[in-house]
Amino acid sequence: MNAFRLVGDLCHLAAIVLLLLKIWKSRSVAGLSGKSQILFGLVFVTRYLDLVTNFVSPYNTIMKVFFLSSSIATVYLIYTKFKATYDGNHDTFRMEFLLIPCALLAIVVNHEFSPMEILWTFSIYLEAVAILPQLFMISKTGEAETITSHYLFALGSYRGLYIMNWLYRYYYENNFDVIAVVAGIVQTVLYCDFFYLYITKVLQGKKLQLPA
């Protein structure tokens, strides 16, 4: 474990907690893409199948349990409890356009052709693009609530910090996973446009508004 990865995991944790706080306090899922949350749930389910078979550390297990349960809870809140506030008309990104290419790529490009490893690879590829429905929805509505933009900033930062973690592990632990690194770079690049808007607008106290 290194500081980059620890801070990255804490950013990820903060993002998920921020999202749950937003939903619970505002009693609304307005502006949230249920599709992205479904994809994130799928990412955790397919990645953490080794939760019981492969013990890494208490920290690893606790975080996996929290990520799994919180992502499933978020999907539940969006599609059942606060369904009345879910803005389905703007959450129209076709998930199959992400699921099918990620599945095919995971079958073709992986470290080992075994079910667990292909599912892990699928989860890595899917995580890289899972935020697209949310970013697409913001581009359609033209704006995002401030707390939603904090959520996105924390979520985008987590994988950016992981890139530094991979650099660190490459130089000091001689550990390198090209699949995770390439997907992680793609994932972080997808947030760049949002990062620019967040830093130039939200941090200036303005609402996140996309140029019409």
Binding site: R47, D50, N54, V56
Partner: peptide, 10 residues
């Protein structure tokens, strides 16, 4: 099964 495939990251 090449055992360096233990994924120790979240």
């Amino acid at each position: 099964h090449n055992h360096n495939l233990v994924h120790d990251e979240l």
